[in-house]
Amino acid sequence: MKKFILAGVFILVATAIFVPFQERLSVVCLSKKAKTMYVKLPKDREFSIEYTHSIHLSEVKEFYKIPGNGSEITQYALLYEDTSIGMPSDAEEDEVFSRTKDGKYLISNMDRSFPYIDLQIGRVVANHRIEIGKSEYELSEFFGKGEFVRFQWKRTSLFAQWKGVTVDGKR
């Protein structure tokens, strides 16, 4: 009887550790072997990616959320300072193009969904950052400048999170 109880406890513990049941935004380095960054998002499941535009040297902020079904990442807004090279000068379809009180450009009402987002962390100027709630993390601190990373929403196990780096936006 004790063997069955021990086996049951072992199975429960192994399941809790190795079965992917927690949803996290994972940031994986595609260009070298590095620890995966697991991001615990707030209840609204929103985050932003911020960077300095390499040509204009002005700040750009892309706003994302994970919709209820959790299968994709949806961009819902874009905030930036210049409409010249590399930046939109108008909105598409149902999107709304406007100016903020401080003179920045805002495209809102965006509904652009992606299974994942790939980006290269800037080597010189960009200083790519991820903002979760009131916390901000420089991606180059986790992966290095010039590395290619992939943002993807997925289920992950406690074991995978222990092997990686977990951030929760409470910095």
Rank of each mutant, 00 (worst) to 15 (best):
residue 1 M to H: 14
residue 4 F to S: 10
residue 7 A to P: 02
residue 8 G to S: 12
residue 8 G to T: 11
residue 8 G to C: 08
residue 9 V to Y: 03
residue 12 L to C: 15
residue 14 A to G: 12
residue 18 F to N: 06
residue 19 V to E: 05
residue 19 V to L: 13
residue 20 P to K: 01
residue 24 R to S: 07
residue 25 L to M: 07
residue 25 L to F: 03
residue 26 S to Q: 08
residue 26 S to V: 05
residue 27 V to P: 02
residue 31 S to Q: 09
residue 32 K to R: 14
residue 32 K to Q: 15
residue 33 K to Q: 14
residue 34 A to L: 03
residue 34 A to I: 03
residue 34 A to T: 06
residue 34 A to H: 02
residue 35 K to R: 14
residue 36 T to P: 05
residue 36 T to S: 10
residue 36 T to L: 03
residue 37 M to Y: 02
residue 37 M to T: 05
residue 38 Y to I: 03
residue 39 V to C: 03
residue 40 K to G: 09
residue 40 K to R: 14
residue 42 P to G: 00
residue 44 D to Q: 08
residue 44 D to N: 15
residue 45 R to W: 11
residue 48 S to N: 11
residue 50 E to Q: 15
residue 50 E to M: 13
residue 52 T to Q: 09
residue 54 S to E: 06
residue 55 I to V: 15
residue 55 I to M: 05
residue 57 L to F: 15
residue 59 E to Y: 11
residue 60 V to R: 02
residue 61 K to M: 10
residue 61 K to W: 02
residue 62 E to P: 01
residue 63 F to W: 06
residue 66 I to A: 00
residue 66 I to H: 05
residue 67 P to N: 05
residue 70 G to E: 13
residue 70 G to K: 10
residue 71 S to Y: 10
residue 72 E to H: 12
residue 72 E to R: 12
residue 74 T to L: 12
residue 75 Q to A: 07
residue 76 Y to C: 04
residue 77 A to C: 09
residue 78 L to Y: 07
residue 79 L to E: 09
residue 80 Y to D: 05
residue 84 S to D: 12
residue 84 S to A: 13
residue 85 I to M: 13
residue 85 I to Q: 12
residue 87 M to L: 15
residue 87 M to V: 06
residue 88 P to C: 08
residue 91 A to K: 02
residue 92 E to W: 06
residue 93 E to I: 11
residue 94 D to E: 13
residue 94 D to L: 09
residue 95 E to K: 04
residue 95 E to D: 08
residue 97 F to T: 00
residue 97 F to V: 05
residue 100 T to S: 10
residue 101 K to N: 12
residue 102 D to R: 02
residue 103 G to H: 06
residue 103 G to V: 07
residue 104 K to W: 05
residue 104 K to F: 07
residue 106 L to V: 07
residue 108 S to L: 04
residue 109 N to S: 14
residue 111 D to N: 15
residue 113 S to N: 09
residue 115 P to F: 06
residue 116 Y to L: 08
residue 118 D to K: 04
residue 120 Q to E: 15
residue 121 I to D: 00
residue 124 V to N: 13
residue 124 V to M: 12
residue 126 A to D: 04
residue 127 N to L: 08
residue 127 N to K: 11
residue 130 I to C: 05
residue 131 E to I: 13
residue 132 I to T: 03
residue 133 G to H: 02
residue 134 K to I: 06
residue 135 S to Q: 07
residue 135 S to E: 09
residue 135 S to L: 06
residue 136 E to I: 14
residue 136 E to K: 13
residue 139 L to R: 01
residue 141 E to R: 11
residue 142 F to N: 03
residue 146 G to A: 07
residue 149 V to G: 04
residue 150 R to T: 09
residue 151 F to G: 01
residue 151 F to S: 01
residue 153 W to E: 11
residue 155 R to E: 12
residue 159 F to P: 01
residue 159 F to C: 03
residue 159 F to L: 11
residue 161 Q to W: 04
residue 161 Q to I: 10
residue 162 W to D: 00
residue 165 V to M: 09
residue 165 V to H: 07
residue 167 V to N: 04
residue 168 D to F: 03
residue 168 D to W: 03
residue 169 G to D: 07
residue 171 R to G: 13
